[in-house]
Amino acid sequence: MTEIKHHLTDDLLMAYSAGALPEGFSLVVATHISLCDECRARMLAFDAVGGAVVDDLSPVALSEGSFAETLARIDAVGADAGAETAPEPTTARSGVFPTPLQAYVGGDLEAVRWRRVGGGVRQAVLRVDRSSRVRLLHIPAGTAVPDHGHRGTELTLVLQGAFRDEVDHFGTGDIEIATEELDHQPVADLGEDCICLAATDAPLRFHGLLPRIAQPFLGI
């Protein structure tokens, strides 16, 4: 794999660790971490902050019989403890999508149900709760995604191929964090189709008449 150049920011990693991200953002973060040991180490460091927070809390009183009740819970499932062995680490991944993404797609790349959105670009909206919107984008080599701005933050993770926009060049594994101010028009590199995972915490704003009309139908 090519060297990852664009990483997650501290506030995203800390929010992920603290459990404060919208589901769609968590999906992008977990998918990037699956591809990037640098950000995995940073995430584990932020988890360690959570550990220090727990250590520093003043203990509160437990209810009477708390320990006995916990032992009873342990014994209750003890009977079928054999069945509850740890999930096998799923490291033997073959394919394009890391496992957290596969869980949302229901499989790898070939399981995606693409829909055309114009200009040769295809997308598939993934189901998450209302706090965010997530989609996969398939951009044919050399093609541009419609120029758009955002009301919130947009995270775009490259899963295959590469694209360039007003900010920089983004290769496989790279993440672009676009804020409200940025209007950008990603163009896929020549040579290979580009597949991205994109999440926003507010609807996108497209420029130009056609995409604006299409927006309600696209669900983005």
């Binding site: 589901e23 959570g50 496992t99």
Partner: peptide
């Protein structure tokens, strides 16, 4: 992880799961 960190992650995940009723995507396991 330290034991405190490990227990924090279990408690945090339960909080998201039970109190927030949200899914939490986890990175691929190593």
């Amino acid at each position: 992880a330290s034991v405190s960190t490990w227990i924090f992650t279990i408690a945090r995940n339960r909080r998201i799961d039970i109190l927030r009723k949200q899914r939490r995507p986890e990175p691929e396991e190593l």
